[in-house]
Design a protein around this nucleic acid. Structure first.
Lengths: 155, 155
DNA sequence: ATCGTTTTCTTGACTCATTCCAGAAAACCT
DNA sequence: AGGTTTTCTGGAATGAGTCAAGAAAACGAT
């Protein structure tokens, strides 16, 4: 089994497959994240504590870091945001982030493999990943924005 | 004069052009950054203090924020790094970052205008910028890396 | 199943980048 | 030059994340 197939396994098997010990915090984090993509460490802690009733903050960070290193999780860090984690790791997809409400969504890679676009001049660098963040406004905030413009103008 | 031409002006005129007061810390920051692209707030503080012998840390942050908002500076925040600032603002260029030594270089935009590539599905988002970071190893670190591999293997 | 080793988790202190605050100082307008 | 507004100073505070030492749990061999 190659790394591509890991996403389809249960957390327990995923951990085994990459040689990490199977522990309650790890299972809970992987499981919770699988239904809550782009969550922060803080949000993961809250989610996990609902079903595990006592996990230290440090454990959350340890789990997130260990799994990220083992490529069971992917970490993204949009400018100005705390890190966010997701279980979708085996493809090279990118992200769409709302400047206003921080809503974050996946977008498929324009090309399909990493690095998905070559820099026009690499200056001798060995490039292994092109990270793309599309910044803008989500539909809800776009509406809110034009509403408040309207209000400002009419005052 | 449009925003595109600002980069060619002296700091004093740049500030005037965007309606910011002309102060010693602002002039020093803009001037120093013009010859030290991709510097952190900390590095800016050190550089500026060499020629101004007393600027508070807060002033550095205020200047960087004010100028970034006025688009005299551009702020980039590669994952895991403190924010970096540069005076090249009028184009939509991207960055190449060395995973090992943090060396950061400009790369011209593949397309030339923002957003330089459309997400394949925008989910209703209004996208105004595509931020691209190419991650890899700079030539120096690539050499160092293969050297240490060599050493490990031969032990 | 149990023991011993290794890894992970807990608690609590700590770092770093950055921001908040209140008052002093400087820049601009007339 | 004088008054107003903005910016700067100094110091405290914040948030995200890490470090460190010992307790607890997981694995692997007996």
């Amino acid at each position: 089994m190659n790394i591509q197939g890991l996403g389809r396994l249960e957390p327990r098997e995923q951990l085994r497959a990459v040689g990490l010990r199977v522990t309650a915090p790890r299972l809970a984090v992987l499981d919770w994240l699988s239904t809550h993509p782009h969550a922060t460490a803080d949000q993961v802690a809250v989610g996990v504590r609902e079903r595990l009733d006592s996990v230290s903050t440090q454990a959350i960070y340890d789990v997130l870091n260990a799994c990220t290193q083992a490529k069971l999780l992917r970490r993204i860090e949009p400018a100005g945001h705390p890190a966010r984690f997701e279980t979708r790791t085996s493809d090279n997809h990118h992200h769409l982030v709302c400047r206003q409400c921080d809503r974050t969504e996946d977008v498929d890679c324009v090309v399909g493999f990493a690095p998905c676009l070559e820099p026009s001049s690499a200056l001798g660098f060995t490039v292994d990943e092109a990270e793309v963040v599309f910044w803008g406004l989500c539909p809800a905030c776009a509406v809110r924005q034009s509403d408040s413009h309207h209000i400002e103008e009419s005052v």
